[in-house]
């Protein structure tokens, strides 16, 4: 089957509520991401500043039979956000694995675009805390996932969740406060998550 059709089918699955279908989507998105990353590395995309969220969206869009499926923008944004979270976490985990054993694999991109490891740790910490929040209120956790991992605006988040922007803002406020408290507890005295340490 053509990847586009395949993706479209998987998306339909997700739409029907089968969240596990996202697993089937990942390798395809990765293939596409690799290709786009290749273009960046080959310097074919000089005109763009690299915006990872946009890259994932692009990867996604390319895969999708647009005519058939993407009339439903909210659906797209929602799945893309989940995808983005997965991609980031895979990355963070791969980083940790690197640190545990073996020499680090040098990647061209990292030369000019260094990333702060602390911030990656922050992403991981948020991810873990977010799982705990989901146990209390799945909708609130989803709001955070869409906004923080998916990079969606308040309006887009409202569109995906089919709630008002006021609700999104309310959910976001208390969720962020809760997460902040959680992470401060977890970070203890290390200060990594202190607001005034500049890492947040």
């Amino acid at each position: 089957m053509e990847p586009r059709n395949q993706v479209t089918q998987i998306l339909a699955e997700i739409n029907r509520g089968n969240q596990a279908a996202i697993e089937q989507l990942l390798p395809l998105v990765y293939d596409e991401l690799r290709r786009i990353a290749g273009h960046y590395m080959a310097g074919e995309r000089k005109d763009h500043t690299l915006q990872p969220t946009a890259v994932v969206h692009e990867a996604f869009l390319r895969l999708v039979d647009q005519q058939a499926e993407w009339e439903n923008r909210a659906h797209f944004l929602g799945v893309a956000a989940t995808m983005m979270r997965r991609v980031l976490l895979d990355y963070a985990k791969a980083k940790q694995a690197d640190r545990r054993g073996g020499p680090r694999h040098k990647v061209e991109l990292e030369d000019n675009m260094a990333v702060s490891e602390d911030r990656l740790a922050e992403v991981l910490a948020i991810d873990q805390a977010l799982d705990r929040l989901a146990a209390l209120d799945a909708d609130q956790a989803r709001v955070v996932e869409l906004r923080f991992f998916g990079g969606l605006s308040v309006e887009e988040t409202a569109e995906v969740m089919k709630v008002s922007t006021a609700t999104v803002k309310r959910y976001w406020n208390s969720a962020r406060a809760w997460l902040y408290r959680e992470m401060q507890g977890a970070a203890g005295d290390s200060g990594a998550m202190e607001a005034d340490s500049g890492s947040i």
Partner: peptide, 16 residues
């Protein structure tokens, strides 16, 4: 906290 999206925190290197 989360003033920037996660992707911006992990920046381009996520592609690596």
């Amino acid at each position: 906290l989360m003033a920037q999206p996660a992707a911006a925190l992990a920046a381009a290197s996520l592609l690596s």
